[in-house]
Design a protein around this nucleic acid. Sequence first.
DNA 1: AAATAATTGTTGCATATGTCAACTAAATTG
DNA 2: CAATTTAGTTGACATATGCAACAATTATTT
Lengths: 161, 161
Amino acid sequence: MSTKLFYLRAVLNKKMEKQRFPFGMIIGRMMHEMGRVFKKRANEQAEIKIPNEQFALLYAISLKEDDVIQKDMAEVMRKDKSGILRLIDSLEEKELISRVADTKDRRKNCLMVTKKGKEVIEQYLKLMSELMEQLQQGLTASEMNTFYKVADHIKSNAEKL
Amino acid sequence: MSTKLFYLRAVLNKKMEKQRFPFGMIIGRMMHEMGRVFKKRANEQAEIKIPNEQFALLYAISLKEDDVIQKDMAEVMRKDKSGILRLIDSLEEKELISRVADTKDRRKNCLMVTKKGKEVIEQYLKLMSELMEQLQQGLTASEMNTFYKVADHIKSNAEKL
DNA sequence: AAATAATTGTTGCATATGTCAACTAAATTG
DNA sequence: CAATTTAGTTGACATATGCAACAATTATTT
């Protein structure tokens, strides 16, 4: 077989492979598996269990330094404000955050992470980093860095569309 | 500043960075953005629009060669059988698949992708590959390969836990 | 063969999430 | 002051996930 033909076949195979398992589905599978294991561990080990979306919001609130209001979080999380509202309802019910009416603009609620909320964040971050430690077994730091770079790049490209 | 202290700070910073944006959340953001754009395009361009989970199942069914039954799909997709059942209800309602009672074992339903279903798969795969073409802009083939490798590796590691 | 167990699919229920539209209260603008 | 905009809230509806109980069918055991 000519080297050229060999090369073409390799390209074709690769193409077919990607066709067979599209990008989104490959990453989807990975996320699905990670989510499954993480949920399992959180159920076993965490004192207070909250769904992933709720944790993502709780953590995002804790990262913002200045006054946090619901509208901003909706933008940050790229969700509808009513969705954010219900996530906040759930978090407040569990006493992980609290709404404090803004004194200057009474339309606004300032969101504060409670002490209990901070503890939950600590626990979840610890669980996450322990899990990642295991999941990265067999991969080099360089590979992981490339992975992060690609993920960030794709996200940025997608944000423009 | 001593070199040792400098080194320690660098390590700490790295740690904090990862702490600040845990792996799952980085990939989650990427998936979220991709999902958003894909959904938008599917709404604009696809004749028949179906949610991502339904497509994932439809496609997974089409990939299986031998007789496909619901229980197997539940295993493949790692979901509860009742969830699969409802996804199948939705797909059947849209006439993308059909349930055919197994003649040998009347407990089983064989799942068949209809012609319409195959067309939907074609359209969605095309949309996906067009989108990925754009999202990969600025990344090298080598980086993408590493990305796939890492994703697959992490998925495999997670499956064992 | 009859009783028992296991398998496959189904249903009900609870929770979570996403999106849209209408609405209230408060602030801003002309 | 009247009209508009903004922030938050609520209701309605669609999608998705997981658990437990159940029915029908098949397989196994006695």
